[in-house]
Design a protein around this nucleic acid. Structure first.
Lengths: 334, 334
DNA sequence: CTGAAAGCGCTAACAC
DNA sequence: GTGTTAGCGCTTTCAG
């Protein structure tokens, strides 16, 4: 009863109140044997009474396992959030809790956030990490790691990705099939393999259809709405603007639609737009897009990670990408 | 070069490599003054070379501030995720990073997860906490805390909530205006004030319209899809089933629609359904619902928390709730 | 069966 | 200017 007023109750408070040593309390809590039943019961009583919970921080400094899986993202945007949902439901009923960390919210420099986050948490706060869209090659770390939408292709560390090339081709072919000939591309984050693959798919589709590739029709959106605003604007203000746009992700596509409207263009009548990802917002925007099974990708990452924690080697999983036609695409007018 | 192979690089590795003491490295990293420029430069060089990042865990054990805001949720479901998005964008450009923790993923017992999470992280891993739908009254803690959709009403600790009563009334009145007379209610998590308010709003609307309240038409969904399955089933298998359902949240509403379909009922022709929250999935489900400004609520929680961190007292914010009519509601047939 | 002591990585007095 | 020391809350040998 003599503990400092508004502070956490620590293992020492419990020890004092139960009249035993700190070490004994630790043993009781962790179910180590070699403790008298009476002592154990008394300590447990005090724990309940005081509402003691061991500090994750202190515990993790001393111990190897924390039973916490880390999900490292740059920021909490829809793509990462959907993955997180998949991770969360896959981990339901296991021993693991989830800790999601957005490491580049504060830092101005986006590049390298994952290395920073990993170092900061990897001490041993987390047993394993799922890293979403890392900007750089991951360092060989002590902590088990799987990357979703990796920086490089499926090599080295475990990865989960999508058939980005095929998806992008399908998206572009859809526009071509509708009769579009001047098709622009809002590129993704070029440091990511996914963005390069999507651009590649776009170019392959053009080439297969015998359409010329016009560098002026490719602009950078970096997967972000803010970056896509000037990109889309530049496209629409071209002397000979495109009749269709394939954006590297939904956020860019939705922004392109917004920009088109401010230019007095109607979608899909004056401009067709296709995205990539199929985040929940794509449905509200009535956006034709390429669906990535985000939920399943999160779950797959969990499965691989748990296997790695169990001793298996890294694994690479590629998910199918499938086009979902909604109302943002139509044949070009006359 | 003689450090243990696959381990994190620690402050001691840096100190050794730079030929200085651990304390000096710490001072350099934290920009304390009283260090020779030459020493500082040398240490910084080693830090860069070795790729050293201070351990968040170790730092937080010794320090007061970590510049990390914790968002504590039971699990990562759509409601919490939307809030998280609001929190994330509100924190963009500040000094704070975000750590979201789902504390009842592993633990079977859902009740009290927030106290557990808070104790575990509150050591000082986080400077402040935003707790989403706490199940119990929050303990007076050392760490600044704001609750979103609190257990009790706006009292005690800082809170952000919605006009649940008004929203529920509006939802029920919408059904009544369409001519429904037998309107059921799938109740939310009764330990939350929001669920009680929504039921209250439902009953008030019935009463104001002179409709009888039938206890058989109120079932428990606990805000979860799994729990809502039997609840909705019971409703539809009643001798005299309802023609409309007001569900306490969108997850329950969407599940009710699914169950209705498996019973061969068409929505909205045979059964009208209204939800609450307006999560992104509500749009895909074409669900009439009551919109909570989730994004803004997350941002509001951030604002209050930052003010509290700056020394202000707790605050209570109530957001408006607004009905959004989509395709899941229509006048009853015949 | 229980306790004393060491130490995880780091920071904050306080010496030198 | 820089190093030494103590200690955050906890777990883990190792003595008693």
């Amino acid at each position: 009863m003599t503990r400092r007023p508004s502070s956490r109750v620590t293992i020492r408070d419990v020890a004092r109140a139960a009249g035993v040593s700190v070490a004994t309390v630790s043993k009781v809590i962790n179910g180590r044997d070699g403790i008298a039943d009476a002592t154990s019961a008394r300590v447990l009583g005090v724990v309940a009474e005081l509402g003691y919970e061991s500090s994750l921080i202190a515990t993790s400094m001393r111990r190897r396992r924390t039973n916490v899986i880390g999900v490292l993202v740059a920021e909490f945007e829809p793509f990462a959030l959907q993955l997180l949902r998949g991770v969360s439901s896959a981990l339901q009923g296991t021993d693991y809790d989830i800790l999601a960390y957005a490491g580049s919210v504060s830092a101005g420099d986006h590049s390298g956030w994952e290395r920073r986050s990993l170092s900061r948490l990897g001490g041993t706060l987390i047993d394993g990490a799922i890293i979403v869209t890392p900007t750089v090659a991951l360092p060989e770390t002590s902590v088990a790691t799987v990357a979703i939408d990796p920086h490089a292709g499926p090599a080295g560390p475990a990865t989960v990705d999508t058939d980005n090339l095929g998806g992008a081709r399908a998206a572009t072919e859809h526009l071509i099939a509708q009769g579009h000939r001047r098709i622009a591309h809002i590129r993704g984050r070029v440091d990511l393999e996914s963005a390069r693959q999507r651009e590649q798919g776009y170019r392959q589709a053009l080439e297969a259809a015998g359409l010329p590739f016009d560098p002026a029709l490719v602009v950078d959106g970096a997967y972000r709405a803010a970056t896509s605003t000037p990109a889309a604007t530049a496209l629409l203000e071209l002397p000979e603007p495109p009749t269709a746009v394939f954006a590297a992700n939904d956020l860019s596509a939705i922004e392109a639609i917004r920009v088109a409207r401010t230019h007095g263009l109607r979608v899909p009548d004056d401009l067709s737009v296709v995205g990539f990802d199929d985040i929940p917002e794509a449905v509200s925007a009535d956006l034709t897009t390429v669906r990535q099974p985000l939920h399943e990708m999160g779950a797959a990452a969990v499965r691989i990670l748990l296997e790695m924690l169990g001793g298996s080697g890294p694994e690479h999983i590629r998910m199918p990408a499938e086009i979902v036609v909604r109302g943002s695409t139509a044949p070009p007018r006359g």
